[in-house]
Simulated assay, not measured.
Amino acid sequence: MGQRTIKVTFMPDNRTVSVRPNLTLLDAGRQAGAGIRTRCGGRAGCLMCKVHVEDQSGLTPPATNECLKLGDLIQSGTRLACQARITGDTTVKVPEDPLKAAVRAQLARQKEEENW
C-alpha cells in the first residue's frame, strides 16, 4: 500500500507536484521548479521565501517563530515556504523574482518607446 500524496500547485506558472505529507512548501517548490528564492537554506533566517496562500487549510498552522518573523503578514495569507508544512492539497502564489520583474519592466518600457 503506497503512501498518500498531496497535490500542490504553484502559481502563476501553474506547476503542480505530488508530494508526501509534512513536506515544506520550499521543498515542494523545488520539486516543481517553482523558483522560490531563499538564501538561508530553509532556516527562516532570510525571509526571502515568502509566498501567498489564500486557503491555508492544507498547511500546518504557523509556528511561533514564523509568526514573529512575519507579524501581521500572516493575516493576509503570507507564509514562509521553508516553515509551512503541507497537510492537504493547496495552491501557492509565488511572487515574481525582483530581478525578473525589473527586466520585464525595462523591456516593456523599451517596447513602448519603439512604438512612439
Rank of each mutant, 00 (worst) to 15 (best):
M1R: 11
G2C: 12
G2A: 12
G2K: 03
G2N: 11
R4T: 07
T5V: 13
I6N: 01
K7F: 05
V8A: 02
V8N: 02
T9F: 05
F10Q: 02
F10G: 00
F10H: 01
F10S: 00
M11Q: 12
M11Y: 10
P12S: 08
D13I: 06
D13W: 11
D13R: 09
D13G: 04
N14R: 10
N14E: 13
N14I: 10
R15W: 06
R15E: 03
R15Q: 07
T16I: 02
T16F: 03
T16A: 02
T16W: 02
T16Y: 03
S18W: 10
S18L: 13
V19R: 00
P21K: 04
P21V: 01
N22L: 08
L23S: 02
L23R: 00
T24P: 02
L26G: 01
D27Q: 08
D27Y: 05
A28T: 07
G29N: 05
R30H: 12
Q31L: 12
I36W: 11
I36P: 08
I36E: 07
I36F: 10
R37T: 10
T38I: 04
T38E: 07
R39A: 15
R39Q: 15
C40D: 01
G41D: 02
G42H: 01
G42A: 01
R43I: 14
R43E: 07
A44I: 04
G45R: 08
C46E: 04
C46S: 07
L47P: 12
L47Q: 14
C49Q: 02
K50M: 12
V51L: 07
V51I: 10
V51F: 05
H52N: 13
V53Q: 05
V53R: 03
E54K: 06
D55R: 05
Q56E: 07
Q56T: 10
L59I: 02
L59E: 01
T60A: 01
T60W: 01
T60F: 01
P61F: 06
A63L: 05
T64A: 03
C67R: 12
L68A: 14
L68H: 14
L70P: 09
L70I: 09
L70N: 08
G71Y: 09
G71L: 05
D72I: 11
L73D: 13
I74D: 01
I74N: 04
Q75M: 15
S76A: 15
G77W: 07
L80P: 02
L80M: 06
L80I: 05
A81D: 11
A81Y: 14
C82S: 10
Q83A: 08
Q83T: 04
Q83V: 08
T87H: 08
T87N: 07
T87C: 09
G88N: 08
D89V: 08
D89F: 11
T91K: 10
T91N: 10
V92P: 03
K93A: 13
V94N: 06
V94P: 11
V94K: 09
P95A: 05
P95F: 12
E96L: 15
E96V: 15
E96G: 15
P98A: 10
P98I: 09
L99K: 13
K100M: 12
A101T: 12
A101K: 14
A102E: 13
R104N: 08
A105Y: 08
A105G: 10
Q106C: 11
Q106T: 13
L107H: 12
L107N: 13
A108E: 13
A108I: 11
R109V: 02
K111G: 15
E112C: 07
E112R: 05
E113K: 13
E114R: 14
W116F: 15
